[in-house]
Design a protein around this nucleic acid. Structure first.
Lengths: 368, 368
DNA sequence: TTGTATGCGTTATCAT
DNA sequence: ATGATAACGCATACAA
């Protein structure tokens, strides 16, 4: 059977304490003894029981990667899969492991069996309400949030430059392509990422002295869904501030290309030619692709009649016809950054909260 | 600070043993006492230390999901991401957690710190050499292989119906579309999945009395790469047998669409029109997409001049122009099946090895 | 029905 | 430099 530390100690003719020290390469133990213990350990293919080590040291070497989401896709999602990869690679580099744990939002508190006391730190990869965040805090579990920021001490926040990326899209559309009537389509703006992209959309109009696209045929849907809108404090942390809704953004309840297609097509058909936008900025690639389909169905060409730009740079966006102009995101890098910040927090739990920015950049292709 | 079992016991005025039993809802303890203990536990927000439970019970409730692969993408891969999701969902349903652990093939043995003694079972999601498999066996760690099968007792194998899916493609090409000159392009055939698809390609020719496509302009590359070819025993387990290479498959060292494009284009240009295939079956969607690009560059049309079919049904394949005819795979379902079989193995380690098949099905779109 | 004592496999403290 | 022993937090066999 599996050899225990006591077995190795006995065979090597030392105490458990010495054996333990020898295996940990402690300077306290004589080279000669150390050599003997290691030899026995190797011979018997001894591997320490990590669980027992964990309870003894109060350190498990496990990081939790949580998604507060009730159903898949979790890592089948083209953003979170690569993010997990980045986290895995960085964790591995520092001899940590990753435990994946979707947490059903139905349970507002994380009563996850394993999470509770056995994890050295946690990464929350999706938007999470305050309650579980406070719970981690009460339990002194170091915490990193991805794509979110909350006014609590001793946390880290990994956010990609949504605003900057979206501004780059608008600059491209306006300066390089000369558009002046640009529509915006998005999932609900209560999602912080989308809200920031919308802010950039608005601000770009102001920068260039443009009127915001207004089409009475678009009726403003439920802009926030059932979620609270991003608050002043949170936006301030990200260097932004609350703005009122202007113009006529097309709001979809979801991020599905078919929903986008179904929403955009009737709008295109109902709108007078002169009121048609010359470009559409979609808050996500998925919506951009659906939008392009709707444009085709309406008998128009992309980008000749209407240009379309997205955000995310999904793998399929480059292969699409026409290849999509979009903002390249770096989920892998975000995963790496999340683990890096988490390890800093574990090393120093009193570390003050900090925001870590991950860059985005515009990729111009054929759809604009 | 965090309350311990001993705290709860003391406050509730019972022994640790009784408290432990009460929390486990043991029928041994009086309802009245149970109620009191649970109340105290709730009041103090007690959560058991899963690590300590694990060492005491020798059961961690953690399942390892290993990928024997030296670099990403791990779960950013469109096949393994959804597979992990399936595993997560099924594990969650049975109160298990998943620890993700890429294992560098450079270390042929899994010296992964945590894996060794602290995991109730393991899923190997990528091809893995025999050595680590034997190692898990020696350590009595229940093991499930995905898309592979080896002649060992007490394991489970989850395999998708590669052969059946590929036969369906060939039937479609030959019967419904009338093709008689069908080329095959693939990553190295030492990969079991691809080899099985190739076998179906060969067998379909035999079924319909067709000659296998032969093009002297295609020089047979390194069909197996540096890996061992699938052996007789393994194929027998899967109901197949070893066949010699016939015809002129185009072999790429990798599964990259650009590699496929670069390989196919010169072949198309060098081949006399009369010797051109009328259809190409690509062993993966990724290769299919690259093949289509090469066909365009050669000034030909898909599917009018050459039809193309793939295998995998990547998300991007449906959005491609033309939408790709392919075989739909179910990685999510494979992940679920893997956990189900693993839990059976944990419950009964003496369970005899079994193969669990996961269906595939043809999806006909515009590329054929 | 409950309590006592021991075990799980380590690390850490305190002697020697 | 090494060993005896406690501690980590819980589960459970055995006693009562």
């Amino acid at each position: 059977m599996k050899p225990r530390l006591s077995d190795i100690a006995r065979i090597a003719g030392v105490s458990k304490a010495t054996a333990s020290r020898a295996l940990a390469n402690s300077p306290l133990v004589k080279e000669e003894t150390k050599r003997r213990v290691l030899e026995v350990a190797k011979q018997y293919n001894y591997q320490p029981n990590a669980l027992a080590q964990a309870v003894a040291t109060k350190r498990s070497g496990i990081l939790g990667f949580c998604m507060h989401k009730s159903q898949h896709p979790y890592f089948g999602h083209s953003f979170f899969g690569p993010m997990l990869d980045g986290a895995i690679e960085e964790a591995r580099r520092h001899n940590y492991h990753i435990l994946v744990a979707p947490a059903d939002p139905a349970n507002t508190t994380f009563d996850e069996h394993f999470i509770q006391d056995s994890i050295d730190g946690v990464i929350l990869a999706t938007f999470t309400p305050m309650e579980p965040i406070q719970e981690f805090r009460r339990r002194n579990i170091p915490l990193v949030l991805v794509n979110d920021a909350v006014p609590t001490p001793n946390n880290a926040f990994i956010v990609q430059d949504e605003y900057g990326g979206a501004r780059a899209v608008m600059r491209h559309l306006i300066e390089e392509r000369g558009h002046r009537k640009i529509a915006f389509i998005s999932d609900r703006l209560s999602h912080l990422s989308y809200y920031l992209r919308y802010l950039a959309y608005l601000d770009a109009h102001r920068e260039y002295g443009l009127e915001i696209y207004n089409n009475p045929k678009i009726k403003l849907g439920n802009v926030w869904g059932n979620f609270p809108r991003p608050d002043r404090q949170k936006l301030e942390m990200l260097g932004q501030k609350v703005r009122e809704i202007e113009g006529t953004p097309i709001i979809i309840e979801g991020n599905d290309s078919s929903q986008a297609r179904d929403a955009v097509y009737p709008i295109l058909m109902a709108t007078d030619d002169k009121d048609l936008p010359t470009a559409i900025f979609a808050a996500t690639d998925s919506l951009a692709l659906g939008t392009i389909e709707a444009i085709w169905e309406a008998g128009l060409e992309v980008p000749q009649d209407i240009a379309v730009a997205g955000f995310d740079d999904l793998p399929m966006s480059a292969a699409f016809t026409p290849p999509l102009t979009t903002v390249h995101a770096n989920p892998f890098e975000m995963g790496q950054a999340a683990v890096q910040e988490l390890l800093k927090l574990i090393a120093n739990p009193q570390r003050e909260s900090a925001i870590r920015w991950v860059d985005t950049h515009l990729v111009v292709r054929k759809s604009t």
